[in-house]
């Protein structure tokens, strides 16, 4: 589903954020991306979402080579991804419903379809009863769930999340991760970048570890953390 082939990313500043990264993710996989701060996790997800372009190497997503994606095609490509990024969060000048509906109105869905799909997505994250609220009155965990509902409302084949549990307490973090696992269970390919090694270990999923832009580990960690 997702293939990185010898991908390099050097920012204009001269910073090498990714160095010769190769990886392969099957359809329906759930993969965690870890590494120290500055290791290149966000950069990898930005390449995947066509926010940045690789300096060298190629990226294939569902058979499509992102290097050959023209700028005008990028929006259509993104409509098939669910993206949960920490910055670019919810818009506080509109309701939860309208926030979640954004990807659908962008794609030109009919009104009836929008209502049905938004409620389905909000139901999945357990926030159907808050659809009319302004997201500003929601808690951090609820806001994150609205963000996830917005990411999945389009029924994407791939869900990409960068530090989705960033500021949440362990219990909420676990709930959010479980939500991703639920989407994965129904066939969505999920890729989550996270610092939370403890939580990741408990999920028993495939983990990719980056260090200074290089992929240094790729596998399912066998050991549980000693204290869990």
């Amino acid at each position: 589903m997702i293939t990185f082939d010898n991908v390099n990313k050097r920012y204009e500043s001269g910073q090498d954020a990714l160095v010769r990264v190769s990886l392969d993710i099957e359809r329906g996989d759930m993969v965690f991306l870890t590494g120290h701060s500055g290791a290149g996790k966000s950069t990898l997800l930005k390449l995947l979402t066509a926010i940045e372009r690789p300096t060298r190497g190629s990226i294939l997503v569902a058979g499509q080579n992102l290097n050959r994606l023209r700028n005008g095609q990028v929006p259509y490509y993104r409509r098939n991804l669910g993206i949960v990024f920490q910055n670019h969060q919810l818009l506080f000048d509109r309701s939860v419903f309208e926030n979640v509906a954004l990807p659908l109105s962008v794609a030109g869905c009919s009104k009836r379809e929008v209502g049905r799909r938004v409620r389905a997505a909000l139901d999945k994250v357990g926030l159907l009863h808050k659809e009319k609220h302004n997201p500003i009155v929601l808690s951090g965990g609820e806001q994150q769930r609205v963000g996830i509902a917005r990411a999945v409302v389009n029924k994407p084949a791939i869900l990409v999340a960068d530090e989705p549990t960033g500021n949440l307490d362990p219990q909420l973090s676990a709930e959010i991760m479980q939500l991703f696992a639920d989407f994965n269970a129904v066939g969505v390919t999920v890729m989550v970048a996270s610092h939370d090694l403890e939580l990741i270990a408990r999920m028993k999923r495939r983990v990719l570890t980056l260090q200074a832009g290089q992929l240094i580990y790729d596998g399912i960690p066998s050991r549980e953390p000693a204290y869990s």
Binding site: M1, R27, G28, V61, A62, G63, Q64, Y77, N80, L81, K155, P156, A157, I158, F183, V186, G187, V188
Partner: peptide, 21 residues
């Protein structure tokens, strides 16, 4: 990436068509 889940999310899992098509 133009693979989409059409009806139910499970459709993606059962769809065996090579993505490149």
């Amino acid at each position: 990436m133009n693979q989409r889940i059409h009806n139910s999310p499970r459709a993606t899992r059962t769809a065996q068509r090579p993505p490149a098509e």
